[in-house]
């Protein structure tokens, strides 16, 4: 479908930092147009100073997440026809993260919390030349597989009410990653993961609102992962493993 005056999108885009404001743009509507296409059109044709972030454009890199009509979304895989309300789009940066400029947020706190939640592999004591055997049907492997495909887009972090209420909460993405790390049977310090996520800012603060699972673009369920961490930390706490 070619563009026509009757077929125009009214787009509001957040400009500036945290104290910025929305600016209005008019963009021709196209078939199979994504929200990222709209932002790119504005930057290339209407306002070259617009700052936004993207890389792969195919839902792999997790760079292009923004708030679209009030909901956090991956913009490269979000079709305008699915989210526009009466030909209107309101695009803002992700919530719960500091705004650098326009649609670009500072992801530093988000990734620092991945480190804080110990979402990384710690090698064990075994010799380097032995290959760990992890059968696909193993319970831990299945749990890790269910959580592993996170693309680090920050959508769940932006959607989380608890992060909005307390900025020190580790958040669904970091805890989901910690759950995958905890279920890696090759890890040399699995209790270390539980210690990292059982602090005052960790998994037990989750209110199970499930906004993370509702908004996750790759259909992961961080709430389920956090529930697993709650059970595991509770058992470890009763056994006294967390205080060793």
């Amino acid at each position: 479908m070619s563009s026509s005056p009757d077929n125009l999108l009214q787009v509001k885009i957040w400009r500036g930092c945290a104290d910025g404001a929305y600016e209005d743009y008019v963009v021709p509507q196209q078939d199979n147009q994504t929200v990222l296409d709209v932002v790119t059109y504005i930057q290339r044709n209407l306002d070259a100073a617009l700052a936004y972030r993207f890389a792969c454009r195919v839902g792999v890199c997790g760079s292009c997440a923004m708030t679209v009509n009030g909901r956090p979304r991956w913009t490269c895989r979000t079709h305008v026809s699915r989210v526009a309300k009466n030909g209107m789009l309101e695009i803002a940066p992700l919530q719960n993260l500091p705004v650098i400029r326009d649609l670009v947020t500072d992801m530093t706190p988000f990734f620092e919390k991945w480190q804080e939640a110990r979402g990384r592999f710690v090698p064990g004591e075994g010799p380097k030349d032995t290959l760990a055997r992890v059968p696909p049907e193993q319970k831990e492997r299945a749990a890790a597989s269910a959580a592993i495909e996170c693309i680090n887009c920050g959508v769940c972090y932006s959607a989380c009410d608890v992060v909005a209420w307390r900025d020190d909460y580790l958040g669904p993405a970091a805890l989901n990653r910690a759950w995958a790390a905890y279920n890696d049977v090759r890890d040399g310090d699995r209790v270390g993961v539980l210690k990292a996520v059982s602090t005052g800012t960790g998994c037990n603060n989750c209110h199970t609102h499930q906004s993370c699972a509702e908004h996750c673009p790759v259909a992961l369920n961080p709430t389920f992962s956090i529930a697993g961490l709650k059970r595991a930390t509770l058992k470890a706490s009763v056994k006294g493993e967390l205080s060793k």
């Binding site: 037990n204 930390t233 009763v238």
Partner: peptide, 8 residues
Amino acid sequence: MTPRLYLL
């Protein structure tokens, strides 16, 4: 919330 408070 710590595991102790959660358990309580």
